[in-house]
Simulated assay, not measured.
Amino acid sequence: MEILQILSYLGIFVFAVTGVLKARTNRFDLIGAVILSFVMAYGGGTTRDLLIGIRPVNWLSDNFAIIIVLVATVITFFFKLNFKLIKQLLFVTDALGIGFFTVVGLQIALQAGIGEGYALIMGVITATFGGLLADILCNSVPNLMKPGELYATACLIGGALYLGLIFLKINTEISMIVCVLTTATIRIYAIRKKLQLPVV
Score class of each variant (00 low, 15 high):
T126W: 07
L132K: 02
Q111H: 13
S140K: 14
G130F: 04
L110S: 04
Q111A: 10
N143K: 11
L133Y: 13
L137R: 01
I108R: 12
A112R: 09
V124A: 04
A112D: 10
G117V: 11
L132A: 08
D135V: 01
L106K: 05
I121F: 10
Y118H: 12
E116Q: 13
L120R: 01
N143T: 11
C138P: 12
A112H: 13
Q111V: 11
N139M: 09
Q107Y: 12
G131P: 05
S140L: 15
L137W: 09
I108S: 06
F129C: 10
N139E: 12
L132Y: 15
G123P: 04
A112V: 08
T128A: 08
V141W: 13
V104C: 00
L106N: 04
A119K: 05
L137Y: 09
V124R: 00
M122C: 09
A134T: 07
L133Q: 06
L132T: 14
G113Q: 07
F129N: 03
G105Y: 06
G105I: 04
V124E: 07
N139T: 10
A119N: 02
L133A: 14
A112P: 13
I125W: 05
N143M: 14
V104L: 01
A112E: 15
T126I: 02
E116F: 08
G115D: 14
N143A: 11
T126R: 03
Y118C: 07
M122E: 05
I121L: 14
I114V: 15
L132N: 09
A119I: 01
V141R: 14
P142C: 06
I114L: 09
A127V: 05
